[in-house]
Design a binder for these strands. Sequence first.
DNA 1: CTTTCATATGAATATCTGTTCATATGTTAT
DNA 2: ATAACATATGAACAGATATTCATATGAAAG
Lengths: 119, 119
Amino acid sequence: MKQPEAECCEVLEVHPDTVEKLKEELPPEELLYDLAELFKVFGDSTRIKILYALFESELCVCDIAQTLGMTQTAVSHQLRVLKANKLVKFRKEGKNVFYSLDDDHVRRIIDQGMEHLGE
Amino acid sequence: MKQPEAECCEVLEVHPDTVEKLKEELPPEELLYDLAELFKVFGDSTRIKILYALFESELCVCDIAQTLGMTQTAVSHQLRVLKANKLVKFRKEGKNVFYSLDDDHVRRIIDQGMEHLGE
DNA sequence: CTTTCATATGAATATCTGTTCATATGTTAT
DNA sequence: ATAACATATGAACAGATATTCATATGAAAG
């Protein structure tokens, strides 16, 4: 007869207890999913470049495209993603749409990432 | 006759100059690419869960798998990614391999992400 | 040395993601 | 109204990625 809740590791120190405790203490599934989704947005070099460009000043779509050497369409698609995740906001002025960083979290998250790289 | 460097936007404020300045001031292509690669690692809920589990204590592979309700193989593959990006370190003890967070950047990056979500 | 257990790895597959192409929307100027 | 321009959007395709399955490695126990 085996124990009701079989552990894969043999009885080695506190593992089974640890596992149970962890299961309870982990943030809810959905929150962790959302967090991953957020980082996924930073996980593309095109979007990173756009964000970096916006560090300096607000920019219209075609200037971003020029700066990155990409098509307007590609940039527009990525701005959509950034917008949906509240990383950028926009302001319409005639034919142009000016994008800018939505808040300082963006800068801080990117800075933390850069720090990690510098090692 | 057109200007040598054609801008997409008409002469609207300082755009052409801005674009040129930005092109120079942006961090090198490769660095931005590496940064995106780093965030890509955080951009998966399985890996986020693993990191969160390791916030509390070091864990062996199979306990992580138990905690997340995933197969050992899947976890092992993701630990490989985390290891390659220096987000976790490991310690071998007999048959087991114990993983733990590599440094505090991991915590800080995740915390910043959580802060952004809480709005 | 053979078996068992914990972990790692390679190949295959299904899903997701970014860019491109074509086109739509909406604004300004003629 | 119509033409020209900036931006957005949908469909399609190519490349990337996570999980699964089968199997390999490597350590401890019998």
